[in-house]
Amino acid sequence: MEMYLIAALGLAGLYMAWNIGANDLANAMGTVVGTGALSLRKVIVLAAIFEFLGAVFFGKRVTTTIAKGIVPIDLVGSIDPNLVVIGMLAAILAAGLWVTLATFYNLPVSTSHATVGGVLGFGLSVSYLGIIPLSAINWPVMLRIVLSWFISPVMGGVLGFTIFVLIRTLVLHRAEGDVEKYFVPLQVLTACYIAFAHGSNDVASAIGPISAAFTALGIIGEEIPDWIFVLGGMGIVLGLATWGYKVIETIGSKITELTPSRGFSAQFATASVVLLHSYISLPISTTHILVGSVIGVGLARGLSSVDLSVIWKIIFSWIVTVPVAAVTSALIFLGLKGVGI
C-alpha cells in the first residue's frame, strides 16, 4: 500500500510542478519575449537553469512553511504517519484539480494559494476527527500568509512604479536618442532573476506536501534533502518546455507595447518582491505580483494603457481558491480514509 501512496504522491507532485512551469513561470518569462529582448528558445533555456537554481538553493524556507508551518505534521505523524501521507496526497490532489479547472476558465488563480488551501483542508479534517485540537493549526502563520497575498501585489505595484519613475527621470528624460536598447541586456539579467525568484518560492507548492509525507514515512529526515528540490525543479522546467512555451508565445505576441525599460521595471520589481517572500518563508503568487508590478508601471504612465478590472478577477480568485481547495482536500482525505486507505 505504502508503495502505491508514494507513487501517487510523486505523480501528483509532478503534475503540480508541471502546472507551475506551464503557466506561472511562463507568465513571468512571457514579458521578456514580449519586449523582444530574448528569443523564445533562449528564454526557455535561461528559465530552466535559473528556475532550477532558485528551487535547489533557495526553495527550502517556503517549502518548510508548506510542509510543517501550517499543520503540525510532526504531531499528526507521531499519532499515525499514514494520516499525513493521505492528507498530503489529498492536499496536492485538491490543489491540482482546482488549478486545472481554473486554468481551463483562464482564471488567474495561484498554485501557492491552492496548495496552502489544500494543506489547511487536511489540518481542518484531522481536527474535525478529534486527532488534533483546532488550536494546533498554526493560525498566526496562516494569517501572515493570507496577509502577504494582499500586501505582496501592492508591494510589486509600489516598487514597479518607483523603479519606472526613477528610470524615466534619470535616464529616459535626460538621454538624447533611443536609450531603450540599453535595457535589452538588463532584461536578460532580470529574466534570470525572475526565474530564480520564481523557483525559490513556487517549487514549494509542488514539493512541500510531498516532503511532509516523506518525513512522516521516515523516507527523509527533518531536513528536506536536495534531491527533492531537484525533482521539483525538473517538473517545473518540464512544464515550461512542454506547455509553457505556448503561454509565452501568447503573451509575447500580445504585449507589444511593453518596451525593454518598462519590462525591466516590472520584472525587477516582481522578482525582488518574490525573493523577499521566499526569504521570509511565505508562499505567494508570482503571477499576482507581476500583475501588481505591471499596474505600478502603468500608473507611472509607463504603459499606454492598463486595465484595472483584472484586479477584481484576482481578488475573486483569492477568495474562492482557499475555501475550494480546503473543502476539496478535506473531502478527498475523508474519502480516502473512509475506504480504509
Binding site: G30, F104, N106, T250, I251, K254, T287, V291, D307, K313
Partner: peptide
C-alpha cells in the same frame, strides 16, 4: 489551457 496576465494590458 492557459492562465495569463494579458488582461492587465488594455
Amino acid at each position: 489551457y492557459q492562465r495569463t496576465v494579458i488582461e492587465v494590458f488594455g
